[in-house]
């Protein structure tokens, strides 16, 4: 199999072509002992403790965009979901659903990125599956990743643990990923150098936990953005939330694009940001730790938990006004004028 080939239905049929793809393309990139055994499943050593388990599927269009591709998105996404349980992610699985006709070099590029992302996050890709479907039955490539991690003793992080007076920290600028994807889409000719923020956040979480920060809530605001995730937390914890507009970190380019298209950055996806909700007396320490991480330099305290109107999120606007931040309903669609 060479980079000039394209993926055919044969590569998913389980025969020689499938084996060639696994041994010539996949294994060299994801190389590790468990995978090399080619058993039906992976057998892994796990330390004692509680297990965090998560799964996610990636269908992003386009599959390549500034700052990354569907591959690192799929690895980082699951790594982060596990990290948001307060766990150290250890192992992940990769399921590939490939549309026939995908150039092998595209697949290689995606897998290389996945291997690098796994290395950066410190997780092993230990099991997987590949299917090839006829043209038109999928859009180039869909990826599912599942993963497991171990939650250290004494850690209790949950969307139901926010209490009044807690401070809300965001680990950096919001809405970068969603706007980077949108500007890469066909039909929208935006000249921008905006990159996805896709990044593994498990090291940041580990630093917070190692420092003994009593983290009440950890969430990564992916689809639906910060606004939607905070609504979920407000509902889950039965508390009110107040955000401060002037404290929200948003890149200039993102603001500009959102203005043009009529989008609200509060509802745009992030792939490398976390929300940490911590008691007031731990807030400045937690902020310092997050800012010290390579993916947290723009972190800021953006709001606080209240006992006012449980389940609702409010924004104090820059001009001193106040308004509701509702959950996103449906997809944000570009406005007419």
């Amino acid at each position: 199999m060479t980079s000039d080939d394209t993926i055919l239905l044969d590569h998913g049929a389980g025969g020689k072509a499938s084996h060639a793809m696994f041994s010539e393309i996949i294994l060299p990139l994801f190389h590790n002992d468990q995978l090399a055994r080619q058993d039906d499943g992976a057998v892994c050593e796990v330390p004692a403790g509680r297990l965090a388990f998560s799964t996610d599927s990636y269908v992003v269009d386009p599959i390549f965009f500034k700052g990354g591709n569907i591959g690192d998105l799929a690895v980082n996404g699951t790594v982060n979901d596990i990290a948001m349980c307060g766990a150290h992610p250890l192992y992940i699985s990769v399921g590939l659903i490939i549309e026939e006709g995908l150039p092998v070099k595209d697949l290689q590029k995606i897998l290389e990125t996945m291997a690098r992302a796994a290395e950066k996050a410190g997780v092993k890709i230990v099991t997987g599956d590949t299917k090839v479907v006829p043209r038109g039955k999928a859009d180039k490539i869909f990826i599912n990743t599942s993963g497991i991690g171990i939650i250290p003793e004494g850690v209790d992080v949950s969307g139901s643990r926010a209490v009044p007076k807690d401070k809300i920290i965001i680990s950096g600028t919001i809405a970068d990923h969603g706007m980077a994807i949108l500007s890469a889409r066909e039909g929208l000719e935006f000249e921008s150098d905006l990159k996805t923020d896709s990044a593994p956040l498990n090291h940041m979480v580990k630093s917070l936990l190692d420092a003994g920060c009593d983290i009440h809530v950890l969430r990564d605001p992916t689809r639906g953005g910060l606004g939607t995730t905070l609504n979920e937390i407000a509902a889950g914890s039965g508390v009110g939330i107040t955000l401060f507009e002037s404290a929200l970190p948003v890149k200039g380019q993102v603001k500009g694009m959102c203005e043009l298209l009529g989008f609200d950055p509060l509802y745009i996806a992030n792939e490398g940001k976390l929300i940490a909700i911590v008691p007031e007396h731990h807030a400045s320490r937690a902020l310092e730790i997050i800012q010290a991480d390579q993916f947290g330099t723009d972190a800021a305290i953006i709001g606080e938990v209240t006992d006012h109107l449980p389940g609702k999120v409010f924004l104090e606007t820059a001009i001193g006004g106040r308004r509701l931040v509702d959950m996103l309903t449906g997809e944000q669609l570009p406005r007419i004028c």
Partner: peptide, 15 residues
């Protein structure tokens, strides 16, 4: 309509 949204978004009614 763009004014309606801007008025709500910036909390102008509340001030």
């Amino acid at each position: 309509g763009t004014h309606t949204m801007a008025i709500f978004r910036h909390g102008i009614r509340s001030v």
